[in-house]
Design a protein around this nucleic acid. Structure first.
Length: 473
RNA sequence: GGCGCUUUCGUCUAGUGGUCUAGGACGUCACCUUCUCAAGGUGAAUAUCACGGGUUCGAAUCCCGUAAGCGCUACCA
């Protein structure tokens, strides 16, 4: 059975890149026959960057996008492969690291951060690749073990030569070759006895029976270390079911800023919460993210279900796409138009839950009819407010005269229908040789908006006249 | 600097040797519709397929170089 995972770190707010990874992994799991498992593992091994509450925020984000996981710290079941929080299985990592030391695949290192720092600076000055200079690699094992009992130390993996080239197979990039003598003796257990990513990812993927390693492109360079660790432990690496190829991974492209750099905080669009605040729909965001990584054959607009059904992991793009908010907005508008009014109403009520004016409006009977008019004019939920809540305009004397005429014509109407309202509007415009936008300014405070005949009919004659009187004072 | 990945309209892409004088989507512009603004419809402009060499009767597509962008180069993930 297919088992895939995302492994976010609780180091801050949920990142849109995490959702991007979740979407791809989710699609791989759910597209498989039989359906696979989508797992969330919490990588909280960096205590200096740990943020209280960040883990819950990750779940909230996944739920908002409807990318609900099958296994995770919060939904453990009997027979699962936990713990799913790395801080809860420290002893296991320590044992495994010790095993590597005992079998000569890893060693204690007593070099201090300062020593390492000066070493690296020197290497850079000499134009060499900064790599650990292996001072502690050949210490006497027994003596080193004694020292380790009382001195602060780390454990490093020993890169063992033999075959100069290490080859991995990336499912979308093909074979990638690395020269072994350029692989660093990586720290696998830190001095605080927490594992680094490299040890933890290999141990966990193995323990959790992960079948497909799918992760961001930034991990390509460290994949050889992971291959070696699998070999050292004598484990079969995840291989997409094809045993003969050895370690097979799939590195997805990175999301980019509009200038081409890795999507970052600086552009402000990295946080999931930002999209929510701006009134984007989760299904539209997923649609957009999916379109960056996969070419949906039947058009631009599709649902999560459509995507999952048609998804083909071998057709994942290899190019890191720039985030285009304009296109996302267009898609969001398309998704708003596809929603039925009741669903849209629920989404709006949630988005404006702290805005009493809008909530009151949504509770009114006429709001459903208004939604039909508003739908084609919204790109985001945020656009809704200005469409339905008028503001007081600053009218010129000329415009005040138009308002006066409009009022007179409106008050003459006996049967308040949109046809009657429209002809009163036309007459007013005729008298003053004015453009339609003036009437919108008078009635709503904005030069454009929902069709006046329709919205004023729904409003009712009394309220409509009252509103126009107010704005032309 | 070293290693790796990537490279088709402004952006996202289709394209796996002839059907490509390169198709679609967003954006832009024009027109239609029209009480405003949208939505919708129709149409237009925008790519010497990063560059330079090969291979071939024929290359966006295969090969080799170069360049640029990005990633990694931590006791962060």
């Amino acid at each position: 059975m297919v088992r895939v995972r995302i492994a976010p770190s609780p180091t801050g707010y949920p990142h849109i890149g995490t959702i991007f990874q979740a979407l791809i992994n989710y699609a791989i799991a759910k597209n498989a026959k039989p359906q696979g498992k989508f797992i969330v593992r919490i990588e909280d091994t960096d205590r200096t960057r740990f943020v209280e509450g960040a883990e819950e925020k990750i779940y909230e984000a996944l739920d908002w996008f409807n990318l609900t996981e099958d296994e995770s710290p919060r939904r453990r079941r009997e027979g699962d492969y936990g713990p799913y929080r790395q801080s809860e299985k420290l002893e296991i990592y320590q044992e495994r690291a010790q095993w590597l030391v005992d079998h000569g695949k890893a060693y204690y290192c007593f070099c201090t951060p300062e020593e390492l720092d000066t070493m690296r600076k020197k290497q850079q000055l000499e134009g060499k690749s900064p790599m650990y200079n292996r001072t502690c690699r050949d210490l006497d094992p027994k003596k080193a073990a004694e020292r380790a009992k009382k001195e602060p130390h780390v454990i490093r993996m020993r890169i063992i030569y033999g075959g100069a080239i290490l080859k991995i197979h990336d499912d979308i990039r093909g074979d990638i070759e690395f020269k072994k003598d350029l692989i660093d003796d990586q720290v696998i257990l830190k001095s605080d006895e927490f594992p680094t990513y490299h040890l933890a990812v290999v141990v966990d993927d193995h323990d959790m029976k992960i079948t497909h390693v799918v992760r961001g492109e930034e991990w390509i360079s460290s994949t050889p270390k992971h291959v070696l660790l699998y070999q050292y432990f004598g484990w079969n690496p995840p291989s997409f079911g094809s045993v003969k190829s050895g370690f097979v991974v799939l590195h997805t492209p990175l999301l980019r800023n509009p200038d081409g750099s890795k999507l970052s905080k600086r552009h402000g669009h990295a946080a999931v919460s930002w999209y929510k605040e701006q009134g984007f729909l989760p299904e539209a965001i997923l649609n957009y993210l999916a379109s960056l990584v996969y070419n949906y054959p039947k058009g631009e607009i599709f649902s999560l279900g459509d995507f999952v059904d048609s998804f083909d992991r071998t057709k994942i793009h290899s190019v890191g796409a720039r985030f285009d908010l304009t296109k996302l907005k267009w898609m969001n508008g398309e998704h708003i138009r596809m929603m039925d009014n009741k669903t849209l109403k629920i989404a709006l009520a949630d988005f404006y839950k702290d805005d009493l004016e809008i909530i009151k409006f949504l509770e009114s009977e006429e709001s459903l009819k208004i939604l039909d008019l508003a739908k084609t004019r919204m790109k985001t939920l945020k656009d809704f407010k200005n469409l339905v809540i008028p503001t007081k305009p600053e009218l010129s004397n000329e415009e005040k005269n138009v308002a006066k005429t409009l009022l007179e014509n409106f008050s003459k109407i006996d049967s308040w229908t949109k046809e009657a309202i429209l002809s009163a509007m036309r007459e007013t415009l005729n008298v003053h040789k004015a453009k339609g936008s003036v009437l919108y300014k008078i009635a709503t405070g904005y030069e454009s908006g929902l069709p006046l005949p329709d919205s004023l009919e729904i409003l009712g004659k009394e309220k409509a006249i009252e509103r126009i009187k107010k704005s032309s004072e």
